[in-house]
Design a protein around this nucleic acid. Structure first.
Lengths: 331, 331
DNA sequence: TCCATCGATGTTTGCGTTAACATCCCCGAC
DNA sequence: GTCGGGGATGTTAACGCAAACATCGATGGA
C-alpha cells in the first residue's frame, strides 16, 4: 500500500479511501491512485482489513455431506446470496456424522475466520458433542427441531408430507404405505410423523413403515417387500431417490406404476421428471431455504438479535405420472 | 490475549507459544495458560495470525454450479482433503457461466483471503475474461484442456468414453450413437471426440450426434429422436442423467432396453444402479480428483513449483443391465 | 480584507499476533 | 566462589490497514 501511495504521490490513507470507495477523494486523485494500483498489481490484504474491522465477512457452513441433493442445493443457494451480500462462505466438512466428527469440526471452527455459521445437520449431534460455540459467533440451523434454542430455517416437511398423503387419499387409495428416511434425520422423522398423523386424521389404517436410508438402493429393497403386499396400492417415499428404487422394484415385480401402485416422492430433484414414469413429488424450495438462512444470519451479525424460532419454507405438490386412482388403467 | 496473559501471570508471548504449540514452555506454565484460555473463552484471532504469517491457510474454489454430481462430489472431496491438511476452503460461486460472471468472481477473488484457488470450470471462460490472477495466488484447474498453461487435474474422459464405445462394439453392435454434453463443456467435448475416434479406429460408421445439455430432459428429447432411427441399437450418453432420459424415451416408444437398444452412461452417479434397467456406465473417481487437486495446489503453495501439465485420473466401466448384444432377448 | 467554514488530504495510532532479540536465573565446571 | 551456558520467559517491533484526528488551502460572506 505504501508503494502505491508513493507512486501516486499521495498518502496511504488516501489509497485506503480509494480502495474502500470512501467519498471525499477528488476524481483526479482517485484516478491516479487507481492507476498506481493497477501498475503495481496491488490488492488489499484481507487479513489486515479483517483485523482492523473486527469482522471477517465470512460465513461458515458446517455439514456432513454434499452428496444429497438437498444439501448441495442449499449450499449453492447460501453461497449465492452470501456473495451478493459481500460475504464469502467457508465449508467446514464434518468427517463423520458422529460426535467425534462434529467435535472435530467445531474445534477447527475455533480458529476459523467466520462471523457466523450455518449448520446443516441434525442438531442432536451438536448437543451430544456439548457444543460450545465460540463466543460472538452466530448460528442458524437447517434440518432440525432446535427451534427452541436456535433460529432454524427449514422446509415445511410436515405440510409437504401431508400434501403427498392427501393427494393419494383423494385419488381414492384406501391407505398409504411409507418408506422412511434414516432414523437420525429430523427431516425424515417429520415426514414420517406427518404421514402417520394425516392417515389417522382421515381414519385410515396405518401400515407398517419400511425404513430406508435416502438411497435408491434402500428404496429398491423396500419396494421388493411392498411389491409382495397385495393390498399396497399407494406409497409415499420420503425422498425421490428412494422413490426411484421403488419404481424399479415394482417394475421388476410386474406391478405397473401408476396402474397397480401409485408412488409419491419428496424433493423434486431435477431427474424425477425423467423417471419411468415421471414422478409425482413434493417440491422443496432449496434456494429459498438458503436465502432465509443467510438473511437470518446476517441480521444476527448486524446485531438485530434474532431469537430462536423456526422459519418454514412452504412446499408444493408436483403431480406427474406416477399417481392415479387405484386399479385404474390410465389413458 | 493480553487478558489471558494477565490471568495466567505470564507474558502474551508465552500465551502465543502455548497456542501455537511451540516448544520451550514448561509444563506447569502451559497448564496455567491453558486454564486461563478456557476460563476466558479465548480463541486466537485468525485475521491477526494471517496478517503476521502472510498466509491464510485457505483455498478458494471457483465454480459455476454445485448442481452437477461431478462438481459437488469433487468439492466435497476437496473440502475433506483440505481440512486434513489444515486448510479451509472458500466457495466462490460464479453467478453465470459468462465472461461477466467469471470476471465478477475474479474481482471478488482479489479481496479474498486465499492462498490458492481451484477452478472447476471450462477454462475458455477464464481466458475470455482475460483473467489476471492476483500475484502469489496459485491455481489448479479441473475440466479443462489448459494443461499447457496451468496444472490440470481431470478424469480421463477420453479413456472412459473409449471403454464405453468398445464395450458396445464388443457386444456386437454395428456402431454406437451418441448424446453429447453442452458444447461449452470441455469434458463433454473430450468424450465426444473419443467416441468418434474409437468408432473410426474400428472402421465403423459415425452417426450424427444428438446434442444434449447434461439434463435428463435433454436426454429424453434426444431419445425420442433416436427411437425413431430403426438401426440405432446402441447409444453412449455423455452422462448418466441424459442416459436416464434416454431410458424413458425408449421405454415410452416401446423399445426395450437392452433387448432392442443398449445404453451406456458416464459418471456412475449413485442412482444409476436403480435406473430401469440398472445402467451400465463409466465410473469416475471424484474423490481422487479432489485429492489430486489439493495435493497439487499445496505443493505450489509450499513452493515446490508445479509446472503446467495434466494429471489424469483413470475411469472404469461398471457393467450393469442396460447393455446386451443387439437383438438379444436377455435372460 | 479577514475570518469562518468546509472539503481534500496527511499523520498518528492501534487492531492481535508472532519473530527476533533481550533478559533472567539456575546449574555445573573450574 | 565465580563464571559460562542454556533453558525459560519477557520485550519490542512490525505485519497492512483504516478510524480518528490534524492540517491545509480555497471559497464566500461580512
Amino acid at each position: 500500500m505504501a508503494d502505491v501511495a508513493r507512486l501516486a504521490g499521495v498518502s496511504s490513507q488516501t489509497v485506503s479511501r480509494v480502495s474502500t470507495g470512501h467519498p471525499g477523494v477528488v476524481e483526479s486523485t482517485r484516478q491516479q491512485v487507481l492507476a498506481a494500483m493497477r501498475q503495481l498489481g496491488y490488492r488489499p490484504n484481507s487479513a489486515a482489513r479483517a483485523l482492523k474491522r473486527g469482522e471477517f465477512r465470512t460465513i461458515g457452513v458446517i455439514l456432513f455431506t454434499l452428496a444429497t441433493t438437498g444439501n448441495s442445493r442449499t449450499v449453492e443457494a447460501i453461497a449465492g446470496y452470501a456473495a451478493k451480500e459481500g460475504y464469502a462462505i467457508t465449508l467446514i466438512p464434518v468427517a463423520a456424522p458422529t460426535q467425534d466428527g462434529v467435535l472435530g469440526a467445531f474445534s477447527r471452527l475455533g480458529e476459523l475466520a467466520v462471523d457466523g455459521i450455518i449448520v446443516i445437520m441434525e442438531v442432536h449431534l451438536l448437543d451430544a458433542a456439548n457444543l460450545n460455540l465460540p463466543p460472538g459467533v452466530q448460528v442458524v440451523v437447517v434440518d432440525s427441531d432446535a427451534g427452541d434454542r436456535y433460529p432454524v430455517v427449514d422446509t415445511d416437511q410436515a405440510d409437504g408430507a401431508r400434501q403427498a398423503v392427501r393427494h393419494l387419499l383423494e385419488l381414492g387409495h384406501e391407505t398409504v404405505w411409507h418408506v422412511t428416511g434414516p432414523a437420525e434425520s429430523f427431516a425424515g422423522e417429520r415426514r414420517t410423523q406427518a404421514w402417520r398423523r394425516t392417515l389417522l386424521e382421515a381414519g385410515r389404517r396405518v401400515p407398517p413403515v419400511q425404513r430406508g436410508d435416502w438411497t435408491a438402493d434402500s428404496g429398491y429393497r423396500a419396494g421388493l417387500v411392498l411389491a409382495a403386499e397385495a393390498e399396497c396400492t399407494a406409497v409415499f417415499a420420503a425422498n425421490d431417490q428412494m422413490a426411484l428404487g421403488l419404481l424399479r422394484a415394482f417394475h421388476e415385480r410386474g406391478r405397473i406404476v401408476p396402474r397397480d401402485v401409485s408412488i409419491v416422492g419428496f424433493d423434486d430433484i431435477p431427474d424425477s421428471s425423467s423417471f419411468i414414469p415421471p414422478l409425482t413429488t413434493v417440491h422443496q424450495d432449496f434456494a429459498e431455504v438458503g436465502r432465509r438462512c443467510v438473511q437470518g444470519l446476517l441480521r444476527q451479525i448486524r446485531n438485530e438479535p434474532e431469537g430462536p424460532g423456526t422459519v418454514l419454507v412452504p412446499t408444493r405438490m408436483v403431480v406427474r405420472d406416477s399417481t392415479a386412482p387405484p386399479g385404474s388403467r390410465r389413458e
